[in-house]
Amino acid sequence: MHKQIYVNLAVNSVEKSKAFFSQLGFTFDSRFTNEQAACMVIGENIYAMLLAKDFFRTFTSKTLCNPKESTEALICLSCDSRAQVDDLADKALASGGASARPAKDHGFMYERSIEDIDGHIWELVYMDPNAAMPAADAS
């Protein structure tokens, strides 16, 4: 059986978050989407649950952080090319997101960091498998 991963994120507005991520090209599974939650399909077996804050609070007794002020997690999304990294980051910026830090080119890896409209940080990364150093050579 293939495992699935669901990243749960508290959002200010499910509808605004759906609109933001739709502009980046993501789709939603209607079976798990309503006014309190949206199941964003990231890839096969990978999903982000965008949960209204009041609904999110029913899953935890801890205080929610404000992701515009505190970092709760860095969500890294692999991309198929440098062009896809730039395309997603540019779409995010045009849709109301913000740059979290400048782009970085490590030769074998290219990355850009964006904040979605709620302040969650998404690391968009392309790694060239042909340029990566083998683990044994990393010393």
Rank of each mutant, 00 (worst) to 15 (best):
A136D: 12
Q84L: 09
E72G: 15
A38I: 06
C39W: 09
K91E: 09
D86V: 07
M1V: 14
D29G: 08
S61V: 06
I5A: 14
C39P: 08
T33L: 00
D87F: 10
I117N: 09
Q84C: 02
T33A: 04
H120P: 11
M133H: 00
S113R: 03
F55G: 03
A19C: 01
F26M: 08
F59H: 02
K16E: 14
I42N: 08
A94R: 00
S61R: 11
D54W: 01
D90T: 15
S61M: 07
C76G: 15
T63A: 13
F55V: 05
M109G: 11
G96Q: 10
A98G: 08
K104E: 15
F59L: 05
P134A: 01
G107R: 00
L9M: 12
G43I: 07
D118K: 02
S70P: 04
R57C: 01
L9P: 03
V7P: 06
I46L: 09
S22P: 03
K104Y: 10
M109K: 06
L24F: 08
E69F: 00
S139E: 12
N8T: 11
P129K: 05
K68E: 03
Y6I: 14
N45D: 14
A52D: 15
P102A: 14
F55D: 02
A37V: 15
A138M: 14
A136I: 14
I75Y: 07
Y6L: 11
Y6Q: 12
I121V: 15
D54R: 05
K3C: 11
A92R: 01
D54P: 03
M127Q: 05
Y6C: 08
V14H: 05
H106A: 10
L77R: 00
A37L: 13
T27G: 11
N45P: 03
L77E: 13
I42G: 10
V85T: 03
I117Y: 10
C39R: 06
M109W: 02
F55E: 05
V85Q: 02
P134Y: 04
L88N: 01
M133Q: 08
Y110M: 04
I114S: 06
D29H: 10
V41T: 15
D116S: 10
F26W: 04
D90N: 15
